[in-house]
Amino acid sequence: MTFSQGLAADIGGTNTRLALVENGQVREDTIARYRNREFGSPEEAIDSYLADSGRPRCKSAVIAIAAPIEGKAIRMTNHPWMFDAEGIGKVLGGAPVTFLNDFEALGYSLDRVSPQRLTSIYDPGRPIREQATRLVVGAGTGFNAAALYQNLHGLQVGTGECGHSTLAVETESELRLWSYLARNRGRASIERALSGNGLREIYEWTCLEDGRAPDTLAPAEIASLANSGGDRCCENAARQWVTFLGRVIGDLALVFLSLGGIVLTGGVTRSLAKFLQEPEFLGAFCAKGRQQQLVSGIPVQLLDDDFAALNGCAARMSA
């Protein structure tokens, strides 16, 4: 049996990513990804990883979860798993377990991200303000954001559940779309649009508005057809999706005054990277009335690293 400083885990609504941590750093040769649907519980997924890794003895574990972190029992928002620190600790041989929100882990990861994994989406041509607040925002199975602050105690990360805020619309057609997303739900949240399922439902609505029946397409297929120009409704859905994204992150930039920049992440965001360079995204991002000049000075980057949150877990483990 080998010994490890700890286990880092990033558990989203669809995938679980795990790695061993040594000397405060993720061991890249130990990174693995599992599909949540293949396991009945997080304990089963973690136990399978430990078995595949030769049963290392971990001194501690930091687990990032796509859910609000409150109390001893954590319930995921977009997956039926429940988390209990004591139960997971038993799988780890009695090691102490710390839970983080997944975007808290992403926040802690940003100072460890390789510059090669960041692509500029919008560069205002101004120096980034040192020590200013930064944001990390992502859309995948769900949607959320975290703010990074510098204070006397170093880097601090604040998280919430902003994906469940109400989606803002500005045009009559968007109001019709909002009603479509809100059907049988009472309202349309940001996450109802800015997620994989959201892209699919926007595509369905776009087809209906165009007078055609939507095909049965997965979000990845919609993104692929949009990128290739192979389907007009897929392309229009992608443009509407990035319009919503630009509007939301512009709002968040004002809420948190994120003059240090915004980092975008998430599988759906990355799949529509081409459309982030289009006028719909930037126009919606900067359209903030009397504060347009302020928001227009904030740089936006795209993070191409699906395992970044594991580095955030390692940073928290070493703190």
Rank of each mutant, 00 (worst) to 15 (best):
Q5R: 14
G6H: 10
A8H: 14
A9N: 11
D10W: 08
T16Y: 03
Q25S: 11
T30C: 09
A32F: 01
Y34T: 01
A45L: 07
I46Y: 02
G54H: 13
S60V: 09
V62N: 07
G71C: 10
K72T: 11
T77I: 14
P80N: 07
A85S: 11
F99L: 01
N101L: 03
F103L: 13
P115N: 10
I121T: 03
G125M: 11
R126K: 15
L135I: 05
Y149I: 05
L152N: 14
G160K: 08
H164V: 04
H164C: 05
S165Y: 14
T166P: 05
A168K: 13
S179P: 03
N184V: 00
A193M: 10
I202S: 08
C207S: 01
P214V: 00
P214T: 03
A220Q: 15
I222D: 05
S224Q: 15
S224V: 06
A226Y: 03
A238F: 04
T243D: 01
L245I: 05
V248D: 00
F256N: 06
G261Q: 05
I262A: 02
I262T: 10
G266A: 09
S271W: 04
F275H: 05
F275I: 05
Q277R: 15
C286A: 09
A287M: 04
R290S: 12
R290W: 02
Q291F: 15
S296K: 04
G297A: 11
I298V: 12
L302T: 05
L303T: 10
F307N: 13
F307E: 15
A309S: 15
G312L: 11
A314E: 13
